[in-house]
């Protein structure tokens, strides 16, 4: 019942300030626009240069450096990269790791965060410490490696990449602090209605927490999307490599003390940039869609029952 009220009420309540804003432009607003535009440019320009560079012929790139305009124009890097199945396979791997990883991570994180946020005596505090300790202490590479490859036998499984990363203490606390803001009255009302703890969590808390879930889902998704180190450790079949590992391999493919020649004529500079575009591209394209939900979610979250 409460939710029905919420869903109609904000429309009238949120509006007035914004209407007022459009009437009168204050200096702070102007300064904000300027500030955001400047920072936006600083962020966008290098990215544009990567795109332009990935389309510039290798010889111009290595001798003259980066420029704003791709001259002479060249698609060499992209044609080289998309030859064969490698990049496509790695997209598949990355999408699997990101999709499944984010689902597991959000589910597990929400669960523990809620129990911490509930403030249960003798449970919540120790649990918070329990979740926080791994942020400070870790067993290091060798034990982790032995655990995954020998105890759990997860080598060459994408889950070896996913599972060590599914609980980020930082995001647990982001979520805890949001859960804590859940209005007590709503919980009390639900309890009076006779709802159990689980039902409260699923029917009351989660629907109210879409914004947090959107935030942590995005952050987890980015983590999984950018993940290469665990993939390097635990995956040995090149068909299973995610995109970022392929990028890593490409960038560091010829460096060693006893350096050896290669017969391939891949454009080094250009290819790195193209690979960057390919790697960032999809998540960048997906981001506005996620963000649409994100922003909507945030607006919903702003309403207080």
């Amino acid at each position: 019942m409460t939710a029905t009220v919420e869903r109609t009420a904000p429309v009238t309540r949120v509006r007035p300030p914004s209407r007022r804003k459009s009437r009168r432009l204050e200096p702070f607003t102007i300064a904000s626009y300027a500030g955001v535009i400047c920072f936006g440019l600083v962020c966008a320009i290098p990215f544009w240069m990567v795109v332009a560079g990935s389309l510039t012929a290798e010889s111009a790139l290595s001798q003259r450096g980066y420029s704003f305009w791709p001259t002479p124009f060249s698609l060499d890097a992209y044609t080289t990269l998309f030859q064969g199945t490698r990049v496509w396979l790695s997209y598949g791997a990355t999408i699997f790791i990101t999709g499944i990883g984010t689902a597991i991570a959000v589910a597990a994180t929400s669960g523990i965060a809620w129990v911490i946020a509930r403030g249960l005596p003798r449970v919540s505090r120790p649990l918070a410490v329990f979740a926080y300790i791994p942020m400070l202490f870790n067993g290091g590479l060798v034990p982790m490696y032995i655990l995954i490859t020998q105890v759990l036998q997860l080598q060459n499984s994408w889950f070896a990449v996913i599972l060590p990363l599914v609980i980020a203490p930082f995001l647990v606390f982001v979520q805890v602090s949001f859960f804590r803001a859940t209005p007590q009255e709503i919980l009390d009302a639900a309890r009076i209605d006779g709802a159990g703890e689980l039902r409260i969590f699923f029917q009351v808390v989660l629907p109210l927490s879409k914004p947090v879930i959107a935030v942590i889902a995005l952050f987890y998704a980015v983590t999984f999307w950018n993940e290469w180190f665990h993939a390097l450790l635990f995956l040995s079949q090149p068909e299973k490599f995610p995109l970022q590992l392929v990028l890593q391999n490409l960038i560091s493919s010829v460096t060693n003390a006893a350096e050896l020649g290669t017969t391939s004529a891949a454009p080094v500079y250009q290819m790195r940039l193209a690979m960057t575009v390919i790697t960032i591209g999809p998540i960048l394209l997906a981001y506005p869609f996620a963000q649409r939900y994100f922003v909507k979610g945030l607006t919903l979250g702003a309403t207080k029952g």
């Binding site: 994180t109 523990i112 329990f130 870790n138 034990p143 599972l163 599914v166 609980i167």
Partner: peptide, 17 residues
């Protein structure tokens, strides 16, 4: 609700410690 997270942490964070 905390159980999955606790198990995952025990295995993947506390185990290697």
């Amino acid at each position: 609700l905390a159980a999955p997270a606790v198990i995952l942490l025990l295995v993947f964070a506390y185990g290697p410690m």
